[in-house]
């Protein structure tokens, strides 16, 4: 059975609800001092701030509302003058994009956020996109340095040791992927096999209507 259309699925499943209207926030002792916050909002509040960013095309966008909400996303951090690992990951993600085909830009979105917003202006990023022949569905983003730093921390691209964390490129090798509506988030090494990264991204894909079908081949 092919995947249902994302919008149909979101409507049909009531993905904004928490678990089937059930009283999970009820205290075992009958007390009701707990707030009811949907788990999706918990993740949004904790990790997906709605800061304003600017795309490589100069468009202002809100991180949660415009880039994350209801989408399958692939996020990495980079900067235009980064040598070595960044271009290798960019080129690898281009292969991943090929594997995912025309879904990229439709319900799967790639985002590269600069670690050097001071120098990576929209114009610089636009040039970067042209130079690497980046295809549609993949947006490069810059913004106010404080907002970028906030995102870097919230998205887990920081290090627990502040001394090590002075090197903001510390986690540059990781590619985060997730499905915002399904509350599924994970990461893959950016230099891993492109086909494997594409497979990982499909793990957070919209559920098929019939789950009880054999979905894997022989993975020997």
């Amino acid at each position: 059975m092919p995947n249902v259309n994302r919008r149909q699925w979101l409507t049909a499943s009531g993905a904004n609800l928490s678990a089937a209207g059930e009283p999970t926030a009820q205290a075992s002792g009958g007390e009701t001092k707990w707030k009811t916050i949907s788990p999706r909002d918990v993740i949004k509040n904790r990790h997906l701030p709605n800061v304003v960013l600017t795309t490589h095309e100069g468009k202002k966008v809100r991180f949660y509302d415009d880039l994350m909400k209801d989408k399958i996303v692939v996020i990495n951090m980079m900067y235009a003058t980064c040598e070595g690992v960044c271009p290798r990951i960019t080129s690898n993600l281009q292969q991943v994009q090929k594997f995912l085909g025309d879904r990229v830009g439709r319900d799967i979105f790639f985002y590269s956020i600069t670690l050097k917003p001071e120098v990576d202006t929209p114009a610089v990023l636009k040039k970067h996109v042209a130079m690497h022949k980046i295809k549609p569905g993949w947006t490069f983003l810059t913004g106010a340095p404080a907002d970028i730093e906030l995102l870097r921390r919230k998205l887990g691209f920081s290090d627990p040791d502040p001394e090590v964390d002075k090197d903001k490129a510390n986690h540059i090798g990781n590619v985060r992927y997730g499905n915002e509506a399904l509350m599924l988030w994970a990461a893959a090494p950016g230099l891993s096999k492109a086909s494997a990264i594409a497979e990982s991204i499909k793990w957070v894909d919209w559920p098929k209507e019939e789950a009880a079908t054999k979905v894997k081949g022989d993975r020997k």
């Binding site: 510390n170 986690h171 090798g173 893959a188 090494p189 950016g190 230099l191 494997a196 993975r219």
Partner: peptide, 18 residues
């Protein structure tokens, strides 16, 4: 390596094919 966990500088692909 660049914040990616590694063994002998190599990465585990998610499809376990390596």
């Amino acid at each position: 390596t660049n914040g990616q966990w590694a063994i002998n500088n190599k990465l585990m692909p998610g499809d376990c094919s390596d």
